[in-house]
């Protein structure tokens, strides 16, 4: 049994978001971190590994420095990692990215008992599209927004967390789940994990490695294979501090109405 976890290295948006003059994100000036939801997916995989002895394989697409992030996840306890990296893959939107990652997963191989885990969405693009698209392209059943996973024979019982409630779904493996932060608390790297992480296998999948997969054509990947393009990105202007009026009496209401009228809102 294998658990394949898809992860993305993202700029840390908890600090200051830096934007280049041309409107693109200045990734170089921001710290790179493991996408938070993906870390929950990693933790879910490692927990399942402890229960079942499954092999945990991490897949990421990105430039070569993403190896550092993969080593961190290997130090948390994953068994091996695959970095999908190549000039041909650059500029991919979610459609092209899922195309490439699906091909990489095909190359790793998906067996009957296997599970693919993704984070719900990345904090840089916030689309939540890549996970579901990978499932579609691999022809696998998918459950999104997973907050609980239990393995029962050849199925998983998943609790989906939706805005207005929960949904419990039984899904047969192989399948793909997208994970949310409510699922678990990710573990730290461990000392023996760090000692071992640089000797664990980390394979690079470049264009040549994936080119024979039916999903990979030069016009389905990279900038050329991306139906969406970023037109403009910018830091939204800071909102001014709000004004609080306390009280439920007539006087407060009149005061409120006066302020709104003064600003020509009413």
């Amino acid at each position: 049994m294998k658990i394949i976890v898809c992860v993305k290295q993202v700029p840390d948006t908890s600090g200051k978001v830096a934007v280049n003059p041309d409107g693109t994100l200045n990734r170089a000036s921001m710290a790179a971190i493991i996408n938070p939801d993906d870390k929950n997916a990693v933790e879910a995989a490692l927990t399942l590994k402890e229960e079942t002895g499954a092999e945990v394989v991490i897949v990421s697409m990105g430039p070569p420095p993403a190896e550092g992030m993969l080593r961190e996840i290997l130090a948390m306890g994953a068994d091996r990692a695959v970095l999908v990296s190549g000039r041909e893959f650059g500029g991919s939107d979610t459609f092209a990215t899922s195309q490439i990652i699906a091909a990489a997963i095909n190359t790793i191989g998906v067996d009957k008992e296997d599970i693919i885990l993704c984070g719900r969405q990345a904090i840089d693009g916030d689309t939540a599209q890549v996970g579901p698209q990978i499932a579609e392209k691999l022809g696998l059943p998918q459950v999104s927004y997973v907050a609980e996973i239990k393995k029962e024979g050849d199925s998983l019982i998943c609790k989906r967390m939706l805005e207005d409630g929960y949904m419990t779904i039984k899904v047969k493996t192989p399948c793909l789940l997208t994970c949310i932060k409510e699922l678990n608390t990710p573990r730290y790297m461990s000392v023996p994990g760090i000692v071992d992480c640089y000797s664990k296998p980390l394979e690079i999948f470049d264009f040549n490695k994936l080119k024979d997969d039916p999903l990979i054509e030069l016009d389905t990947i990279g900038l050329k294979g991306s139906p969406t393009n970023i037109f403009k990105s910018f830091t939204p202007p800071q909102k001014g501090a709000g004004m609080m009026l306390e009280g439920a009496d007539k006087e407060t209401c009149q005061k409120l109405a006066g302020i709104l009228a003064g600003k020509h809102i009413i």
């Binding site: 550092g68 080593r71 961190e72 130090a75 730290y188 790297m189 461990s190 000392v191 760090i194 000692v195 992480c197 640089y198």
Partner: peptide
């Protein structure tokens, strides 16, 4: 070394 950078990161997060 890369390993020692990871040690620092891990200890710092834990601390």
């Amino acid at each position: 070394s890369n390993e020692h950078k990871l040690f620092r990161k891990m200890y710092r997060e834990f601390a």
